[in-house]
């Protein structure tokens, strides 16, 4: 009986996450409209909230189409891989101590990194199997960008793990309890933040789908719900990175008056808001500048951060 209850609860968690992703698409369009001095979708429902439902319905009703020149099986697998890798990460993410599926798993952080390398395969397969030059260019760009920014991200996390002495996300969140870890790791926070945006491939790092150069990048040939999966993966990845930032650096569930899980949600929402703001404000860099910045600036900084943290930990001990 408990087993079935758990399965139902997992299903509900999935639905809630999908709902959040759909709502974020709408929220982003409204926020961008606000920042760019225009209206955004405001017709359906109060403030236009119904737009999220309408979009989902439209994607679901569209024709399920596989181009004759694509290699079928891989073309079908790629979007599912992307959506899966984003969704599965939430299994180890705690909202508060005890509120999670596997937040106390001793190597939850490694699972998230492993899933982000699975994401690379979804993007790569989508671009390659489409058999289209724009898609292939998009995939090449995306793969190069993702593996370049995974390194500084991993190194920033390593410094954090060194301080907290735990690889479980719940343990890492607990390490930032009285004092948020951003106080000890300001440089690591910046590195993780930048690399996190690059990992989710959002503006200003959306070179892989730069509309003005590559039509739509690696998902040029996709339509309907298959495109929807890519979209879902992108927005869920955004939520995951924002939640990780607030969990690891912003003190997770600590805060006065309100219950812990609400603080965690509020912090995540705040970080997502900053992501929207960045999207509206920053221009897209050139592709070589992007890789240059990743390898020649971010990576040495991350190594320096790790070294300094190690020295500090040797001198004054860890948390």
């Amino acid at each position: 009986m408990l087993f079935f209850a758990q399965i139902v609860a997992m299903f509900v968690t999935l639905l809630v996450l999908l709902g959040i992703a759909g709502f974020l698409v709408f929220a982003e369009r409204r926020v961008l409209g606000l920042l760019q001095n225009r209206l955004g979708p405001n017709r359906l429902g109060p403030l236009g909230v119904g737009q999220a439902l309408a979009d989902a319905l439209k994607l679901l009703c569209k024709e399920d189409f596989v181009p004759p020149f694509a290699s079928g099986l891989l073309y079908r697998t790629a979007p599912i891989l992307v959506a899966f890798s984003a969704l599965a990460g939430f299994a180890v993410l705690p909202l508060a101590p005890g509120i999670s599926w596997a937040g106390d798993w001793e190597i939850g952080l490694l699972l998230i990194l492993a899933l982000s390398s699975l994401h690379v395969y979804g993007v790569f397969l989508g671009g390659w199997s489409s058999n289209n030059k724009f898609a292939l260019y998009g995939a090449i760009r995306a793969v190069a960008q993702l593996i370049s920014y995974e390194l500084p991200m991993g190194l920033a996390l390593l410094a954090l793990v060194l301080l907290a002495g735990s690889l479980a996300l719940q343990g890492l969140g607990a390490a930032g309890q009285p004092v948020p870890l951003i106080v000890y790791q300001p440089l690591g926070f910046l590195i993780f933040f930048i690399a996190g945006i690059a990992e989710t491939q959002r503006l200003p790092f959306d070179l892989a789908e730069a509309e003005s150069e590559l039509v739509a990048g690696y998902h040029t040939e996709y339509g309907g719900m298959r495109f929807g999966y890519f979209f879902l993966g992108e927005y869920l990845g955004l939520v995951l990175i924002a939640a990780l930032i607030s969990l690891l650096y912003l003190g997770a569930w600590s805060g006065p008056w309100l219950p812990g899980w609400l603080w965690m949600l509020l912090k995540t929402g705040f970080v997502i808001g900053i992501f929207f703001w960045l999207r509206a404000s920053l221009p897209r860099p050139r592709y070589d500048q992007l890789l240059h910045w990743g390898w020649n600036a971010l990576l040495p900084l991350a190594i320096l951060n790790l070294l300094l943290t190690a020295i500090a930990a040797a001198l004054w001990g860890t948390l």
């Binding site: 190597i107 490694l110 699972l111 990194l113 492993a114 982000s116 390398s117 699975l118 690379v120 395969y121 790569f124 390659w128 292939l136 995939a139 090449i140 793969v143 190069a144 593996i147 995974e150």
Partner: peptide
């Protein structure tokens, strides 16, 4: 997980990158 991180996440991606 280290097997996935190192071989799938790094080695094979570079392989595919060249082969592609």
């Amino acid at each position: 997980l280290i097997l996935i991180l190192v071989y799938v996440g790094a080695v094979m991606v570079l392989f595919l990158f060249v082969v592609m």
